[in-house]
């Protein structure tokens, strides 16, 4: 089975994001970059599925030449080869889904696994757009029933269950008030939630091997996609700061404040 996974380049989730004084964007200096954590979970799930069912994991990223770092990271984890859509400049979710659609039509995977959202834009849209563009089924926010400290997780059992005939995938989804289970005909789109798996670390031999794995370069022009954005970010600002609070000495003092000052109890 062939699985296409995504690897968006995003700011390290631990880094402090600050808005530029003129509101035109965020301060780039001193930031570290990583693979989007949700995408990394997608890479891991793809690797587990292929370990169980044979096949190949192809990783795709869109951006300038710096996104090759994220592609190499996924290759070092064990992905077999990479597709790099070389594009600099603004891109919105319609554009991203349009580019991925063309890559999917070229690669013809059985499944595409994407992060449910990227931790920069936090839009949570691309998987669903892509599913509609392709006319495929979608199972978003894939999760697993067991905890991330369970035996299944330690043994790297995939949480997505492919049917015996290889034509369907069963996905448990995190929804409001519980867990919903769907069965999608393949090919299908799956997006990952945090509790799907614990991504592996790249091993040293993995990192060495990744250096010689192929990265195919494409461009929006080659794929025939107009990526003029329809979403314009006019201005960015820092969220309003909360006024500084106080530390109270003990519980009676806390209750007094909550009762008489905040008036919430």
């Amino acid at each position: 089975m062939k699985i296409l996974v995504t690897a968006k380049r995003v700011e390290d989730p631990e880094s402090k994001i600050k808005v530029k004084p003129d509101g035109s964007g965020i301060v780039q200096e001193g930031l570290k970059y990583k693979i989007n954590p949700f995408d990394e979970i997608g890479v891991e799930e793809g690797l587990r599925l292929v370990a169980k069912h044979q096949g190949e994991v192809v990783v795709v990223s869109i951006g300038g030449k710096e996104v090759q770092e994220q592609l190499r990271h996924a290759l070092a984890m064990g992905a077999h080869r990479a597709v790099w859509v070389n594009h600099t400049g603004p891109l919105d979710q319609l554009g991203i889904a349009g580019l991925l659609q063309k890559v999917v039509e070229k690669e013809k995977p059985d499944m595409v696994i994407l992060g449910k959202q990227s931790i920069d834009d936090d839009q949570n849209q691309v998987g669903q757009y892509l599913a509609e563009f392709l006319g495929w089924g979608q199972a978003t926010f894939a999760s697993k029933v067991e905890s991330l400290e369970s035996e299944q997780e330690k043994n790297k059992v995939p949480a997505l269950v492919v049917g015996a005939d290889g034509k369907t995938v069963r996905v448990v989804r995190e929804v409001d008030n519980g867990l919903a289970t769907l069965e999608c005909q393949l090919p299908a789109i799956v997006t990952t939630d945090l509790r799907l798996n614990q991504p592996r670390y790249a091993s040293l031999p993995g990192i060495m091997k990744a250096k010689s794995k192929p990265i195919e370069e494409l461009t929006p022009a080659k794929l025939g996609v107009d990526v003029t954005p329809a979403i314009q970010v006019l201005k960015m600002s820092a969220p309003p700061a909360r006024k500084a609070g106080i530390k109270v000495a003990d519980v009676p003092a806390l209750v007094e404040k909550l009762h008489n000052e905040a008036k919430v109890v």
Partner: peptide
């Protein structure tokens, strides 16, 4: 955006 660290003013065209 960025986990609520940034508020963005967005126009859809």
């Amino acid at each position: 955006m960025w986990a609520g660290n940034v508020f963005a003013e967005v126009k859809l065209t």
